[in-house]
Design a protein around this nucleic acid. Structure first.
Lengths: 337, 337
DNA sequence: TTGTAGGCGTTATCAC
DNA sequence: GTGATAACGCCTACAA
């Protein structure tokens, strides 16, 4: 592989000049620039990015940590982040945190040791304090789906409470009054916020939450099916069900159907996230859109703006969810209201 | 950030010795090793991976190119690759090729310029010749889901023809004789092979393929729905449908149901890939398992073995698909056979 | 077993 | 505008 040195010899200029035409940060006479360009072409020269990084103290790599690499949710996020950086000539190093505190910390450490210029984190298990401390170290971080007041300007988040509110209101507006709720793990902030939104909606309609119609699931399919199974075993009556995410909604749907309920005839269901599967269920799932692709892109822009000085870019920190109505919810006949 | 030099001073040894205890490739007296370790600890020393790379001519990074970053299929693949490398202290740089020749080539170039030690590619649009040429350059490559005789030892692939055969035989065994087939784009090798398997199964049962019951889709949901729509508009009769992948099967299922068909009562459907969505459809989709996670892991092992000299590892190049029976296929009543 | 010194391919700071 | 030359932080013969 040709080096900058060989190029300089062939072009009959100094090594420094070659570097200048590469980075065009210093004026170079047009004639020499062309000579250099020709020499690079002839040698098939490609800059060694590692040497560049060592000399410039910039790796042009951004670390991304997500809970899981598979699944529609993170896929969409990573995809939009990669596209944005790729267009800017940066590259992306990925790691998985598996929603586990020590694994998440390991992952972060791993990425830092890889000399990433910045980190984009979608972490769940790690504490606020840890992240605040981390943000004071050398490697800048951006958080997705997390709100920490002390470092708010680095947090890109969704208004989860509003989403929970919208999901519940969708059913309330359709006349449903007996609502069940299957939540994600309440130690996860987003799960808690979504549930808060639900409570808010109930309150607005003058309803009391019924503890027996609440189930704390795991954000996986089994959480949804377990929840429905429990409600039904207790002989509880409910015509609407709000789930903390689409996976659980899918599990709930399957379980309800196996117990002889017609969806949406006997039970209306709303999910949350609008991941791809919500489109594959039968009936198609009504849900709350989580604009994860846009948020990932924004995280990338944040980095481009603050770390790579692309000042013109605008970043938006808080996103709003919106209702996606499909086929899993129906209006309750007024006589039944 | 502390450097190796500061550590050496604090420990009262030479810089080379510090390097030795880090890489423990040269004997170091236990006492000195401990001194060095203590010094590293005290300074919170972390090796600069970029400097290591420059000096050792090893970046410890592996480039991965897939068609898309989202979607269950690639997610599972990337996930298993990352896990395998992470455990080995290597990291993974990802890029998307979007099934488009120039984008795939750009992506490969991009990764090569990033000084990856090796590339793992799941490419579709790029030609065999290009890949053969590529494999002669400095950066080693491994191919997933592609068979190129000239570089067979670097190809990790699925026996797609067998899968197509198994899918069709599943329906034939259940008594179905009027079979429709919705294929992926035939310029994609895997789509073509799967279809070949189908033809093989028909032949085994003494049946002729009916051209009118063949539709070339796009591997997306719309391909499945378009295919079914076309068959039905032509008033064709068929009791079994094989789809080139699960997405199309899902689309087909939805369309068929909207046309008033009961699944599997009126029509049995088989997919291919066994991605997560096959589990979310209603009824749950019978399909052919594509062990993509295992194949990704194997690609990673290939690299560890051949590039990083982890000689003990065994690699398997060809994988076998298998039938996953769920709820979307039924046996045809003998009287109707 | 340990130290010395040259080199990896750039960038960046000086002079000229 | 351009050319030396010193970093950047580490690895690795070669010597001792």
């Amino acid at each position: 592989m040709a080096t900058i040195y060989e190029v300089s010899k062939l072009a009959g200029v100094s090594l420094a000049t070659v570097s200048r035409v590469m980075n065009n940060n210093t004026p170079v006479r047009e004639a020499t620039r062309l000579k250099v360009l020709a020499a690079m072409e002839e040698l098939g020269y490609r800059p060694n990015s590692i040497a560049q990084s060592l000399a410039s103290n910039r790796s042009n790599s951004i670390g991304i940590l997500v809970s899981e690499l598979y699944g529609p949710f993170y896929g969409a996020m990573i995809s939009s982040i990669e596209a944005e950086f790729r267009a800017a000539g940066k590259h992306v190093i990925i790691a998985a945190g598996h929603s586990e505190e020590s694994t998440e910390q390991d992952g972060i450490e791993f990425l830092i040791n890889r000399s990433c210029d910045a980190l984009i984190l979608h972490v769940e298990a790690v504490s606020d304090d840890y992240l605040i401390k981390l943000s004071q170290s050398d490697t800048p971080i951006v958080l997705i789906n997390r709100q920490i007041p002390a470092i708010q300007s680095q947090c890109i988040s969704l208004n989860n409470k509003l989403g929970g509110y919208l999901a519940s209101r969708l059913l309330l507006e359709k006349g449903h009054r007996q609502l069940a709720y299957i939540s994600g793990p309440l130690w996860k902030t987003d799960a808690k916020e979504r549930y808060r939104g639900h409570q808010l909606a109930l309150q607005e309609y003058g309803l009391q939450p019924d503890e027996r119609l609440f189930f704390e699931g795991d954000f996986h399919e089994s959480g949804g099916s377990d929840g429905v199974a429990q409600f039904l075993q207790q002989g509880l009556h409910f015509t609407g069900l709000i789930c903390g995410n689409d996976e659980m909604a899918s599990g709930a749907m399957t379980e309800a159907r196996e117990c002889g309920l017609d969806i949406p005839g006997d039970l209306s269901i709303v999910g949350y996230d609008n991941v791809m599967l919500s489109h594959y269920t039968y009936p198609k799932l009504s849900t709350i859109d989580y604009p994860i692709a846009a948020m990932g892109q924004m995280a990338a822009r944040w980095v481009l703006k603050h770390i790579y000085q692309q000042d013109k870019l605008d970043v938006q920190l808080v996103f709003e969810p919106k209702v996606i109505e499909r086929d899993s919810c129906i209006s309750l006949a007024p006589t039944l209201g």
